[in-house]
Design a protein around this nucleic acid. Structure first.
Length: 572
RNA sequence: CGGGGUGUAGCGCAGCCUGGCUAGCGCACCUGCCUUGGGAGCAGGGGGCCGGAGGUUCGAAUCCUCUCACCCCGACCA
């Protein structure tokens, strides 16, 4: 490709509304342009990287035995009503009507559509296992789209769905996908981790997320320093804390705490450590008030509590409800004397002589003790794991925390959708059975963004070769000079013939301008053709990542680039 | 959805508080000269319904009302 005939609108200044570095660089490098909130045009460079990821995904899905199809993005409401997600999915589902007033939505995911297809066509155990996938634009009307391609409303996703005769076979399909995902992200050149995850609105029994490690990541994940355990904090299990010291219960004390509301304020005012306090939170579970207790230095994990309570809606109560439940304004809630259902975190069980709210304005209690002063309906693991917690799986490890970007997610769905949509088959005994499903997603655009998040410097993007829009750029420094032009053309032709994807910068621009652009768009290898070196028969080869420069005869430079590209692509 | 903020040339911004002359600056763009190893220099030039609608006023980018769009924070830590 010749730069002068191509379309790479680079920008020197950083756009004001781009926060994270991947978004800034994708805009500056001319990879994408915004059309509306969370909706983007993919320009040539961005599209090439996206195609690279798609192709890696495609190859690995095919290798794992999955079969590519393409489903429509416009989906009739009936299917979503049949699975009952029409009501459950909420405002993220973009709904609209056609001219006949029939309801439709833009598919945010395709369990219903694929299950409908399969229930019509798959009738026998002989037709399974089967795994169907597609690479397609999805639409989710996100509350707050942000970070460019990282959280868009329209985005390109690979989604795969497996169908099996029983749970064991489904597990095996799941495992194949898990392994395929590892290969995919390794091939993309990413540093990532697979972690246990909550299943959220997709549902199902268990799942893993594939997280690209990056400080700007929206998700917090934990991993054990000693064993293989790794999980999203939403899911990460807290190891029950052993009962505290056997201190004697002291007499309950009422303490005036004027205007001291937060754990921080009260602990400072009373001179007790936050860990010796009980944090009391009032929530509404399907509109029923519930009180959650966690240790003062811990955080409530709403997802755990929600799963424990088996409710569909869980939210923090507003001031009005808090006042009604505790009899005191916000900031003075405590478990003593409450009549509503109380769920306490396991760590609260061993607490002795704790401090907590007095359910009265400007009042807190000291030396509060379980059983003597208050009772708890149920104990459960409802807090967030914190850095340094003991590992729930092994004896020796402690939990370490990371930030990650979720680029892939694999779910065991069981029979949630097949049951709702009556997707059944006849087994070897001629009996009707429900199909076991799994589903497997990869955010294609997000993978490119996550990659840039992980691979950049002050000058711009540093693409790993497998997903770089071009392998090599030839910077022809003074294109008006015949020798430079001819040598550049020669190198270009030879590289193209060798199967290297080359961008020839044949623009009539100053050298510095070309160097800045080349660095910004992140092409891994650069050959500089300048008249001085060329007089000696040499060109310069520079690696974007290391900055390593070598002066080489033309033939050798071509050879080096060809070998480097072949090596990088053959690595796995 | 709650709070805050911003809409002025393709991009980044000033002007608005305190209304007034032709609406400015940098980058980008066009022409010419010059220059050619890290986003050069000089000269000339094009480009704006100041987000939209309504109002106040002799006069509105500027004040008021409504509206649309976008951005940020929050929507869990009482």
């Amino acid at each position: 490709m010749r730069y002068s005939n191509y379309f790479i609108p680079t920008v020197k200044e950083t756009p004001a509304d781009a926060e994270v570095v991947s978004h800034q660089l994708m805009l500056r490098a001319g990879m994408v342009r915004k059309l509306a909130a969370g909706i983007y045009n993919y320009l040539p460079l961005g599209l090439r990287s996206i195609r690279k990821v798609e192709n890696i995904v495609r190859e690995e899905m095919n290798r794992a035995g999955a079969i590519e199809i393409l489903m429509p993005s416009v989906v009739p409401a009936e299917l979503w009503q049949e699975s009952e997600r029409w009501e459950q999915y909420g405002k993220e589902l973009l709904r609209f009507k056609d001219r006949k007033d029939a309801q439709f939505c833009l598919g945010p995911t395709h369990e219903e559509v694929v299950t409908d297809l399969v229930r019509r066509e798959i009738k026998s155990y002989r037709q399974m296992p089967i795994n169907l996938y597609q690479i397609q634009s999805k639409f989710r009307d996100e509350i707050r789209p942000r970070f460019g391609l990282m959280r868009g409303r329209e985005f390109i996703m690979k989604d795969a769905y497996s169908f099996d005769v029983d749970e064991k076979a489904a597990d095996s399909s799941y495992d194949k996908m898990y392994q395929a995902y590892r290969r995919i992200f390794e091939r993309c050149g990413l540093k990532f981790r697979a972690v246990e995850a909550d299943t959220g609105s997709i549902g199902g029994s268990s799942s893993h997320e594939f997280m690209v490690l990056a400080d700007s990541g929206e998700d917090a994940i934990v991993s054990c320093s000693a064993c293989e355990y790794a999980a999203n904090v939403e899911k990460a299990e807290a190891r029950p804390i052993e009962a505290g010291e056997h201190a004697d219960a002291r007499a309950l004390e009422r303490v005036a705490t004027p205007e001291k509301r937060t754990i921080e304020e009260v602990s400072e005012f009373l001179g007790v450590h936050a860990a010796a306090m009980i944090k009391t939170l009032v929530l509404l579970a399907d509109n029923e008030p519930v009180v959650a207790l966690v240790r003062g230095d811990h955080e409530l994990n709403e997802i755990k509590l929600k799963n424990f309570l088996h409710c569909t809606e869980l939210e923090m109560a507003n001031d009005e409800v808090v006042t009604k439940v505790t009899g005191a304004p916000v900031g003075f809630a405590g478990p003593v004397g409450l009549t509503v259902k109380i769920v306490a975190d396991l760590a609260v069980k061993g607490m002795k002589n704790a401090a907590t709210g007095g359910n009265e304005k400007d009042l807190h209690l000291k030396n509060v003790n379980l059983e003597r002063d208050f009772t708890v309906s149920q104990f459960a693991d409802i807090r967030n794991v914190v850095h340094g917690d003991a590992c729930p799986r092994c004896k020796d490890g402690v939990m370490e925390m990371w930030r990650g970007i979720e680029v892939g997610h694999v779910f065991k769905l069981g029979t949630k959708y097949s049951k709702a949509l009556k997707a059944t088959f006849l087994d070897a005994d001629g009996k009707d059975q429900t199909i076991f499903m799994g589903c497997y997603g990869i955010g294609i655009g997000r993978t490119v963004a996550a990659c840039i998040e992980q691979n950049n410097d002050a000058n711009g993007i540093i693409f790993p070769l497998p997903i770089a829009p071009f392998h090599c750029i030839i910077s022809a420094l003074n294109i008006k000079e015949a020798p430079v032009r001819e040598a550049s053309e020669l190198i270009y032709q030879q590289l193209v013939e060798a199967g290297v994807e080359v961008l020839l910068d044949d623009r009539d621009e100053r050298p510095g301008f070309k160097f800045k652009d080349a660095d910004l768009i992140g092409i891994p290898l650069r050959i500089v053709v300048g008249s001085k070196n060329l007089a000696e028969g040499n060109v310069e080869l520079k690696e974007r990542k290391s900055g390593e420069v070598s002066l080489l005869p033309i033939a050798e430079a071509v050879e080096r680039v060809t070998v480097a590209v072949a090596t990088a692509l053959a690595r796995i």
